[in-house]
Design a protein around this nucleic acid. Sequence first.
DNA 1: AACTCGTGGTT
DNA 2: TAACCAAGAGT
Length: 288
Amino acid sequence: MPELAPIVNAWFERNARPLPWRAPGFGAWGVLVSEFMLQQTPVERVVPRLQEWLERWPTPADLAAAPPADAVRLWANLGYPRRALWLHRAAVEIRDRHDGRVPRDVDALLALTGVGDYTARAVAVFAYGDHHPVVDTNTRRVLARAVDGRAQPGPPARRDLAAMALQLPAEHDAAARFNAAAMELGAVVCTARAPRCDACPLAAVCAWRNAGYPDTGDTRRRQARYEGSDRQARGAVLRVLREAPEHAAALDQVVPDWPDPRQRDRAIDSLIADGLAEASGGMLRLPR
DNA sequence: AACTCGTGGTT
DNA sequence: TAACCAAGAGT
C-alpha cells in the first residue's frame, strides 16, 4: 500500500470545494461554529446559516451575551437543536474559562459542551494547523475501503483515530490538508451509496476495488424510523416555539391536534428536561 | 455499548 | 414508498 496522503492531497488541490471555512483567515470561532453545524447536517444546508450566525455573533462573547432562545431560533431547521444550546454553552465556557478565545489544546476543546473527538481535533487542525488525526464518517469510509478492503466502515471506534494517525504525513501543513482531503474525497467521490471510482485518485490502489468490490457486510446501526417518533413530536413542538409571537405559546395550543397526546406531553417534558423549553404560568417558551 | 437526538433530500 | 444518508455527541 503506497502512501495515501500525497495522492489524495494532489487530488484535493484541484478539487476542493470553495467552502467558507476554508477561506484564509476564517478564524477559530467560525471553524468551531461550522463544525457544530456540520454535525450530522449536510454542507449545503449549513453554509447560509453559518453566515447569518457569524454576522450576528462575531465572537464567542457576543453569543454568550445573548439568550439561549436566540441561538435556538437562529438555528432554525438545521436539526438536532440541542446543538444550538450546546454551542451557546460552549461560548459561555470560552468566555469564562478561556478569556473569550477558542482554545487550541485538544483536551481543553474536549471539555467544552458539545465538543467530542471529531470536533475537538477538527478545530485544532483546521483553525490552528496542529498535528492530529481528524476522523469523521467520510474519512472512516475512505480508510475502510482503500486500506481495509471493506465496503462500509464499522461503527465509530477509538481505533479509527490510530488508523488515521498512521496515514498522516509528519509535516503539519500536509497532515492538516490530508485530514481535509480525506473528508472531501469521502464526501464527493467515495460516497456511501454510489461511489464514483472512475473519478477517484485512489482507484488503482484501493483494496476494496482491487478485491472486486466484495460485499463485506454492513455492521453499522440502522437509523430509527422518524415518522411517528418522539423526535418528530419534539421537532413539531420546538417549531411552534421558534415561530411563536413573543417566543411563547399557551401549553394547550402547542400542536393540540398531535395524533398521540401522551407523546406530545412526553415531548414537552423531555424538551424542558433538556433545557430547550421552559414552562411557566401555562405558557411554554424557548430558554432565556 | 447501545440508544437517543431533527430535518430534508435522494433512491 | 420506506429506507437511506448527512463533517457526531452525550448518556
